[in-house]
Each structure stands twice: as C-alpha cells, then as structure tokens.
Design a protein around this nucleic acid. Sequence first.
DNA 1: CCGAATCCAAGGCGATACTG
DNA 2: CAGTATCGCCTTGGATTCGG
Lengths: 126, 126
Amino acid sequence: MVTNGQTWVRGDLFDPNCATRVILDRIGDKWTALVVLRLKDGPRRFTELRDGIGQVAPKVLTQTLRRLERDGLVTREIFAEVPPRVVYALTPMGESLIEPITAVSNWAEEHVPAITRAQEKYDASA
Amino acid sequence: MVTNGQTWVRGDLFDPNCATRVILDRIGDKWTALVVLRLKDGPRRFTELRDGIGQVAPKVLTQTLRRLERDGLVTREIFAEVPPRVVYALTPMGESLIEPITAVSNWAEEHVPAITRAQEKYDASA
DNA sequence: CCGAATCCAAGGCGATACTG
DNA sequence: CAGTATCGCCTTGGATTCGG
C-alpha cells in the first residue's frame, strides 16, 4: 500500500517493517489511548490532561502529546499570555481514532469479569 | 462494575487501578494482537505461529501465549506424540476480540499515508 | 518440536527539580 | 502554567542455549 523507499506491503501486518505495525505499537503505548479518549470531549489544557489522567509524569505526557501532534492526530495551540496557556485538541483524523479505540476499550470493560474468572481458574490449577 | 476487594469502578478507565486498563495494556503489548489475528484463520501450532509472525523469540511467544491462555482467550492442546505437537486456538471470548482489534488495525492501515505525510511535514518545520 | 533457562539490551516510564 | 533537564529503575523484548 505504501512504498516510501522501504518495502511496505499492503496488509502485511506481520512484517516488522510494516508501517501499520509501527503505528499500532504507538497506539498501544501506555498513554496515547487515554489522551485521545480524554480529548474526545473537547480541547483540553496541559494541566487538565495531566490531572484528568491518572498520575502521569509531565515528561511522559509531553512525549505522548508531541508524538500525537507529529502524527497529525492532535493540534497544539499556544496562547502567549501570562501565565501561558496551551490547548490541545483532536484533529479530524484524531477524532476518527476514537471509534476503534472505544471498541477495544468497551471490549475490555465487558470482559473484565470473565477474564478475571479465567485467571483465577488458571492460577488455581497451577 | 467489579469489586474484588480493590475498588474497581465502572468506566473509570483513568484510574490506574482499573481492571479495564490493565487488560488494555495487555492487549496493547507487542505481540498479543498479532497472535490473535493469526489464530483468526484457525488453530495453529507453535512453530506456525513463530514463523508466521515476524521473528519472535520463542520465549516471548510463549509468554504471550501463556498470558492469552491464562486470560481465557486461547486454548492450548498438547498431543503426546513424537515429535510433540501443541495446538493453539481461540476460545469464543478470544474470537470476540478479533473485531475490535481488526477495527484498530484497519484504522492504522487506512491512515498510514496521512500519518506519514503529517510526520514529514512536522519534521520539516523543525 | 516445544519451550524452559539464562543472560542481556533497550527504552518506556517515572520522580524530582528547575526555567521562560 | 507548561514544560525541560536529569537520573535511574525496571519491565519488555531479544538472542542463545539446552532439555523433555
């Protein structure tokens, strides 16, 4: 599907050099999904995000936001005021990510009880 | 939604102690999604999985499969033959995970070009 | 063939202190 | 307020070897 000088083949998710997989790994990191879900309800300031998501070190939150910005999923708007104000928001592409993330999130939530039971059963027989 | 002695609250994905988030982190690891997608087409032997997914160290593949088994998402069937044969397959719950994973995977694949462009643009202005 | 054991590397992640 | 600068842990992943 993409040929950027490397060799990216459509659908070959199992190739380590596949761009899709790189993106997948990114989405799967610890905070990206949470940030996107947080921004679902509208633009948020840095502090709002930091406080709204379980304790994140500012460095890590910045990393996450920068990557999202670089990927074109989030915009970063700076207001030159005192004190400074920076507002993050989802781009249209970022918003399109809400649906699949929510799907996974809902799946997880629905299956927590069953998984917990499976784990207890497994641990008991070990 | 779940109270196991801790304090798990329904929908509070932003609480670090939330079971849903723990599961989410698990699904988001490097190989879990790939294994599930591989097993989508039917049961597979250990070697088939190892060869079918970009190079995975056997230790890591075993870890991934054991976690999936423990979570009740995959079954592990051993045939006492020579040479030994072990077959992994999705449980019904495991199969239910295909849909949300596929959703994310499809999203990634669809947006690879746009993301790549966004990255190049971002890097250029930096 | 399956996977356990061991050792090792990388880097994501976190806590803290400090600055424009 | 919104980060950056440091430092270090510690988990995850990887390479290899060996055993049942």
